[in-house]
């Protein structure tokens, strides 16, 4: 099953890179519970609540999204995914003034997905959303929280679809950039 995961994630991400957004959504959905298990495992020795775990999972998903171009299509996906996950987890803990020193290679590949818990929520991104420029915030909220498509959001906010796309991408990148600068401790 683990070997399958790599090839399945690989074909989903390749499809995503050639413009299949449904494949991309499926890829991220399959990633989320595995990342959750990964972060829980790394945080096992710290006293961390489930909201904190979910915040880190979301940061990792955001980083994977924004750094998609660093994956080479012929390379296996999961080592790439877990390297990003480890980097973001360590980074998130460092911002909270903690350190972990756990080798991941011996367990990451054999990690089973945690039970699917689609309603888990974090608080970190909401807090960052509040600091975005108004247009970016409204677009991200319309698409993420309300569940609008690009065209629905464009209609509601009386923007062109192109402007909605730009605002969405900039908004997501800005949220990620804030964490990279070490701001926004949870």
């Amino acid at each position: 099953m683990r070997a399958d995961r790599n090839s399945e994630w690989g074909s989903l991400l390749r499809a995503a890179n050639s413009g299949d957004s449904l494949a991309y959504q499926r890829f991220l959905r399959e990633l989320a519970p595995v990342l959750r298990a990964f972060v829980r495992r790394l945080l096992a020795r710290t006293s961390s609540g489930s909201a904190e775990v979910e915040d880190i999972v979301q940061e990792v998903l955001l980083a994977i999204h924004l750094k998609r171009q660093t994956w080479i299509e012929t390379a296996p996906v999961s080592p790439w995914v877990f390297t990003i996950a480890r980097h973001k987890t360590i980074d998130a803990l460092r911002r909270r003034g903690r350190h972990i020193d756990v080798p991941i290679d011996d367990f990451a590949e054999s990690l089973a997905a945690d039970n699917d818990e689609p309603n888990l929520a974090g608080v970190y991104i909401d807090r960052q959303l509040g600091t975005l420029p108004e247009v970016q915030r409204k677009v991200v909220q319309a698409i993420a929280v309300t569940g609008d498509s690009i065209s629905e959001a464009a209609e509601k906010l009386t923007m062109t679809q192109g402007a909605v796309r730009v605002a969405l991408h900039r908004g997501l990148a800005a949220i990620a950039a804030r964490t990279a600068k070490g701001g926004g401790t949870v």
């Binding site: 999972v57 689609p118 888990l120 929520a121 993420a144 929280v145």
Partner: peptide
Amino acid sequence: MKTDDLIRSLA
């Protein structure tokens, strides 16, 4: 924000 909502916006 729910993780699933975030995923939708990423996609």
